[in-house]
């Protein structure tokens, strides 16, 4: 089964055929600057991810440059490489690919 079909955040979630994978979005606001991570979004494929990124994070400001990459394709260092906890060090971008249960009686904040 392809990643697009698995969908979930990472490679570890419950398969669901309609869920789009998570992409990280990097935007260069103007010439001379680096691309900066601005957030994430869901898209079925790279083209859609770019379209959505332009709509959502730049409000289609012409002239900015956008990179998108599947979150599951990013290898990330840990903050503290000597932590025995995190071996191997080149881990997924987010440490917790599965959902953590939230109590159902959510009080008003």
């Amino acid at each position: 089964m392809s990643d697009a079909q698995i969908g979930r955040n990472g490679d570890n979630g419950t398969p669901s055929k309609g869920d789009w994978p998570l992409y990280e979005v990097f935007v260069r606001g103007k010439r001379g600057l680096n691309h900066v991570h601005v957030g994430s979004l869901h898209a079925a494929d790279d083209t859609m991810a770019l379209t959505h990124a332009r709509d959502l994070y730049t409000r289609r400001n012409e002239g900015v440059s956008i990179w998108v990459v599947r979150s599951s394709h990013i290898a990330a260092s840990t903050r503290d490489e000597k932590d025995p906890f995190f071996a191997p060090s080149a881990d997924k971008v987010y440490r917790h690919p599965t959902f953590y249960d939230i109590p159902d009686d959510v009080p008003h904040i």
Binding site: G7, R8, N9, G13, S16, D19, L22, G39, S40, L41, H42, L56, Y94, R95, H96, P97, T98, F99, Y100
Partner: peptide, 19 residues
Amino acid sequence: GHGLYLYSAAETLGADRAD
């Protein structure tokens, strides 16, 4: 857009938007 920024922040904690 705000909803999407926030779901994105929640997903950095391992939550999943569909869920």
